[in-house]
Design a binder for these strands. Sequence first.
DNA 1: GCCTCAACGTTTAGACCTAAACCTAGGGAG
DNA 2: CTCCCTAGGTTTAGGTCTAAACGTTGAGGC
Lengths: 170, 170
Amino acid sequence: MDDYPLDGTAALPPADIAAAWERELPGVPTSSIGVLTPLWRAAKTLAEERRRTLARLGLDAATLDLLSTLRRSGPPYTLTTRQLAAQTLVTAGAISQRVARAERDGLVVRQASTASRRAVAVVLTDAGHARVGTAVRALLEHEEALVAALDPVEREALGALLARLGTAAG
Amino acid sequence: MDDYPLDGTAALPPADIAAAWERELPGVPTSSIGVLTPLWRAAKTLAEERRRTLARLGLDAATLDLLSTLRRSGPPYTLTTRQLAAQTLVTAGAISQRVARAERDGLVVRQASTASRRAVAVVLTDAGHARVGTAVRALLEHEEALVAALDPVEREALGALLARLGTAAG
DNA sequence: GCCTCAACGTTTAGACCTAAACCTAGGGAG
DNA sequence: CTCCCTAGGTTTAGGTCTAAACGTTGAGGC
């Protein structure tokens, strides 16, 4: 995966991509490219960075997302499948699979919910509790260093612009 | 997948996530959350939007990425596996699988490269050429509408900040 | 002329996701 | 009491990705 021999054909600057489409499909609107291409690339680069960091800790992003949602919910560190799906922005089917893997690894357990007999309560085990604490500390420290490329004012502006773009599409 | 019954537990604002970690793990640095959470969410929302748009056209994002990279390269609309991997930011293995699916669907063909006997030339078929033209027009028009939530100055600023963040991590 | 190593592709194992089918448990209408 | 519909979960089919193992094919050293 590391390094491709960059034989003159690496990722193009957004302006070049827009110019290429203008040539191939004259008249097509290209102004979104200047925003979305950097967005895809930043998200991908940061996701890879996160994956590498987590791999050293024996976790993956999906499992961390599950465990950290439970941990952030506070005592008694329990949420239903449905609640997890809503907070993590994935489908209930995906949660079901994540929980199955995490349960296999002893990080969570499934119990009958006290509230409703239909619901399933996903509970963080002691091992899961400890694991997510360590991982989140490491991850937040690492990511703090990455966003340090921007000063506080720029970070604020970037977060706000992304939130507006995200809600515009949602 | 549509709508979760939002039983009071939807996606939290970044500030609340940061507060929860400060409570669970006192002293942990949380300032990256204000940038990265909106970034993940915007990327995910826009990716879903793109998936829906492409599904109506009978394409998926991975295939479009392959076909559009070939189309943007201009005549003779041919690149090697390695060149495709470099430009699309995925591994050569992923390209190999994408090409296999696209070839099965008659959108590209594999030929021996004229330049090197080791290399494989992936060539856009007429069907692939037409398909990508239609899809890219539809997609760029749709995405133009999405980024219209930001004015030109904001779009410029957002693209520049994302580019800096992406290269800082890369 | 051989040998070895690097480059190019493909394949495989393991994880992940969505959409859709499927099961079960309750609640409400009659 | 029964029937049906809905909500919560799980399962399955199909597609996606990475990392790593595995063939080949050239190219350069000796």
